[in-house]
Each structure stands twice: as structure tokens, then as C-alpha cells.
Computed example of a mutant assay.
Amino acid sequence: MSTIIEVKNLAVSFHTYGGEVQAVRGVSFSVPRGSTVAIVGESGCGKSVTAKAMMQLLSCPPAEYKGGEILFNGEDILQKTERQMERIRGNEMGMIFQDPMTSLNPTLTIGRQITEGMMKHRAFNGKEAKEEAIQLLHLVGIPQPEQRFDQYPHEFSGGMRQRVMIAISLACQPELLIADEPTTALDVTIQAQILQLLKKLQEEMGTSILLITHDLGVVAETCDYVVVMYAGVVVESGTAEEIFANAQHPYTKGLLQSIPRLDQQRAQALRPIIGSPPDLMDPSPGCPFYARCEQAMRICKNHHPTLEHVNGEHYSSCWLRHPMAQVVR
């Protein structure tokens, strides 16, 4: 299966008064065409920074691209000018931002915000853009789209605003859709509706989706592949089935043990991951999970493990995968 976008050894830092924050450190993964790939991990692990870097939405300074490539349809995004990126953003690559409360312009009507991209990238006139926007609002489940077209964001509920964000991101029929925490701050019922909507739109339009989330329930429901990030690096990757059935990295196992399970006959206490993520102003040379890992070895402190092949498309960055490591029971 061909890939629509491939990230190779991406490194991004932020320069602050306190020093350099190494937010993303050598991240590599790819998104196969027509599939859904999830990047998971706790807050601060570099998920959103990676997503914004893929669309060159980071302000430089304070951000700095320290290295790597982002190949979209074979062309390196990081080598393109801002004018070239303006032709790609919203047209070939769409993005659903994390908070619709702040992502929508409160002074412009919903219709104006949806049609803006169509008129810029698809050369629609006002009438054509309005007809297409109304169809999009209907597609994403907004009732009475003709009336809603002329309303403002404050007249919509949180779930409705998120649907509008999806409509805006799909206005130009992008090949790749990046969804950054699309169900954050929504109740469970609305979350399910948004996820079903994304799945339906992917089937109808063939769009590839990169989903940024910390909700493993969402991942299990919707995703084909999973990339697990911790402290700015990829610690495990594989198909969703491989990750959920046979997680190898202690951090991935900790994530799975910290969520409630409905397939167990007896209720079991959740096991949180003790400790806090490392300081990315001064990351250690070894495994970033060393200080929180119950199975840490001496080598983990000073030597960073490489991604080792487990089986199939499954890879794990852990010294426990090394042939000389002792078997942990």
C-alpha cells in the first residue's frame, strides 16, 4: 500500500527564556493511503507539535525545525515556501483543530468560514460555494443547513461547532485530514457521533486520516495503525490489532492498564503510571521512560534503545526486545 505522507527523523525545538525545549526528537512514521493512523500519548509528548509541523503551522521563532523530512506525495513539506504551503493547506491537507471554541472566528458567519477555502482553492463563485457549503453542512449532520449557513459560532453547541470544523476541513476535499483531538470536551454521545461521522466520510471520500488523541477507546474504535509517542519520541508502532493484543513497550502497557475494561468479569482497580514525564529542556541520553519504568535496567539510563522489529508491522523501542535481555515474567 502506498503512503500519502511520510515523516522521517523529524526534530522540532522551541527556544524559550529558560532554554531549548526539544519537543520532537527524531520521530518517524507514515500514513498509508485511505487508512486511519493514530498518534497517542499523554499530554506534552509531542503529538500536536508533530501534527502542526506537518502543515508548517509552527511560528519560527520560537519554533525551529532541527532536522528531518516530511514527504507529502513525495515532496518535502519543510522545503516549501509559505506561498507554496498556502496552496496545500486546506486544499490537499485539511486539519480539524483541537478546540472549536477558539478555532472558529466569532465575527464571521459559519457560511463565510466554510466558503472561504472553496473560493480560494477551487475557484468557486459565491453562489456555487454557498450551494456546496450547504451540502457539506447537511453531510456532517447539521439540521436546517440553509438557515444555519448565515448564523454565527455562538449560536451553535460544542458538538455542532466541531461538525462545522469538520465541514471546513473537508471543503476542498483534501487527500489527508489531520484531526487533532477532535472529540475533546465533548460528551460521550457526541464523541461517538463525531467518530462515526469521520469514519463515514472516509469511506465516501477516500480521505486518509491522521488522528491525534490520548483516548485509546477512540483508537480501538476507528484506527488501522497506531503510533505511540512519549517525551518527543516514538516508543512503539504497529497495526491497531498488534498494539492492543500484544503491546511490547512498558509505556504502552501502562497506557492500556490505566483505562477501564468492559471485557473483564470482575472489576479491577486501574493502574496509573507513577511519576511524571521527563524535562525536555534536558532530556537524558537513555530511554525517556527509564525513571517511570518498573522493568528498567542499567543500560536504559544512558543508552537510547532503537526500534526493534517485533513481527509484521509491529516495532518497539525497548531494551527488553534486545536478544541479550533477560526474559521478564
Rank of each mutant, 00 (worst) to 15 (best):
C300A: 08
H314N: 12
L195D: 14
N125Q: 00
M95Y: 06
H322F: 14
L280N: 10
L280E: 09
D224F: 07
E155I: 04
N125H: 00
L307K: 07
E221D: 15
V328N: 13
E131P: 06
E6H: 08
R329G: 11
E313W: 05
K130Q: 13
Q162W: 01
L255Y: 12
K200M: 12
D76R: 08
P145K: 07
N125D: 09
A51N: 03
K80G: 10
K52D: 01
V164L: 08
E294M: 14
T102N: 14
A247I: 04
E221A: 13
D279Q: 06
Q147M: 06
S169G: 10
G286Q: 09
A245T: 12
G34H: 01
E42F: 00
R292H: 15
T189D: 11
G206T: 00
G254S: 11
R329F: 14
H249T: 02
A185R: 01
E131K: 14
K120D: 11
G19C: 00
M297P: 12
Q84E: 15
V218P: 11
A185L: 01
I190D: 14
Q257L: 14
C223F: 08
L201V: 13
G68R: 03
S276H: 07
L176C: 04
A11S: 13
F14S: 00
N302F: 08
P100E: 09
L71F: 04
D282H: 15
V188Q: 11
M93H: 07
I212H: 02
H121G: 11
Y251L: 04
D187S: 07
E236M: 05
M85Y: 12
I39C: 07
V233N: 06
A267M: 10
Y290T: 09
V327P: 03
I299M: 11
S237D: 10
G158S: 12
L210W: 05
G18Q: 00
C45F: 03
D187P: 07
K253T: 05
L177A: 06
T213F: 09
A325Y: 07
Q264A: 13
R25W: 01
L211C: 05
P288D: 12
S48R: 06
H214R: 04
